[in-house]
Amino acid sequence: MTASTSSLTAIIGAGVMGETLLSGLLRAGRPADQLLVGEKRPERGEELRARYGVEVLDNVEAARRATTVALVVKPQDMAAVLEQVSPVLRPGQLVVSLAAGITTAYVEARVPQGVAVVRVMPNTPALVDEGMAAISGGRHASEEQLAEVEGLLRATGKVLRVPEAQQDAVTAISGSGPAYLFYVVESMIEAGVHLGLPRTTATDLVVQTVVGSATMLRETGTHPTVLREQVTSPAGTTAAALRELEIHKVRAAFLAAMEAARNRSAELGS
């Protein structure tokens, strides 16, 4: 490796989100020799070396060599990974946690004093560079380090800073949000089949409708209520459909679902 230690970022955890971050950074122009991957499975390590040209190490060595350490692991695995890498971490290093529910205080209690911690809630549309990530800094995270994390995550989409007290709600909205939308899409496709459309036709209709509607929201800046009303003619087909959604309390169900996700995020952190 020719890169200096000061420029190295280690991604520990090479699952879907870890690989998403890795590939996004490379697409955004980050040289492969400025990235390390911590991966315990030899076959997975060889796959990543061949695909991206990055150096793959064990977790401890990756954490030892890097200045920024991104922990992209499941919440239930965080304690074990921190116990593994904490002995080689040092003051001034930056640890970025991408695990749902894990607080900066939780990480800070398990790493040496003076290690900066930033908490991140990403989501899976980062796979296509349309992710939404929310970040919160811990006690020792500087403005420069927060900006560094923003730079890392902009490689795969949009980034917002939020108070850490809002992170469980963020997890419920954008972290888990893609699954809700996929659930709605799945339901609409099944409805199309039920109404007599071929599945491929129903899929094309629904997917493009979702893409177009999301683009309208983003590019026009118009409130969703206004956009909904523009589609809803008095006593028309859309009004009839929306009446059924209200009868079945879909709006209330979404609220209850997101409250459940928020509460589960808080449980994971405890």
Rank of each mutant, 00 (worst) to 15 (best):
Q167S: 12
L22W: 09
G15A: 04
V85D: 02
R119N: 07
R139N: 12
L57C: 04
V54N: 02
V73P: 03
E244D: 00
G38Q: 11
V184H: 01
D58G: 14
S213T: 10
E219R: 13
V193N: 01
R51S: 09
Y106D: 06
T222S: 06
E39I: 13
D204C: 04
E190G: 01
A252P: 02
E246P: 03
S136L: 07
V117P: 03
G53D: 00
R49A: 10
I173K: 05
G45S: 02
A241Q: 01
L268Q: 01
D33P: 11
I173H: 05
A235W: 00
P234E: 02
A240F: 05
A235G: 11
G18T: 13
V111W: 09
T203M: 09
A261W: 00
I173E: 02
A252K: 00
V54K: 12
P75M: 05
T215W: 06
G269P: 07
V60I: 14
R199C: 02
E55V: 14
V115T: 03
L71Q: 06
E39C: 15
F254M: 10
H248V: 02
G101A: 00
Q208T: 07
S23Y: 13
V128K: 10
L57N: 04
P91H: 02
T68N: 11
L245M: 11
V207T: 11
A109I: 06
T124E: 01
E190S: 10
E259I: 10
D129G: 10
K158H: 13
E39A: 13
A66R: 09
G137K: 03
Q34E: 15
V184Y: 08
T20C: 15
R154T: 14
V60C: 07
R264S: 00
T222K: 11
V115S: 09
F254A: 05
R90N: 03
M17P: 05
R51A: 11
R262W: 02
P125D: 09
I135H: 04
R27S: 15
A202S: 03
E259G: 01
L89S: 04
E130M: 14
L89P: 02
V60N: 07
A63K: 11
E19H: 12
V162I: 12
Q113V: 13
D129I: 08
R65L: 11
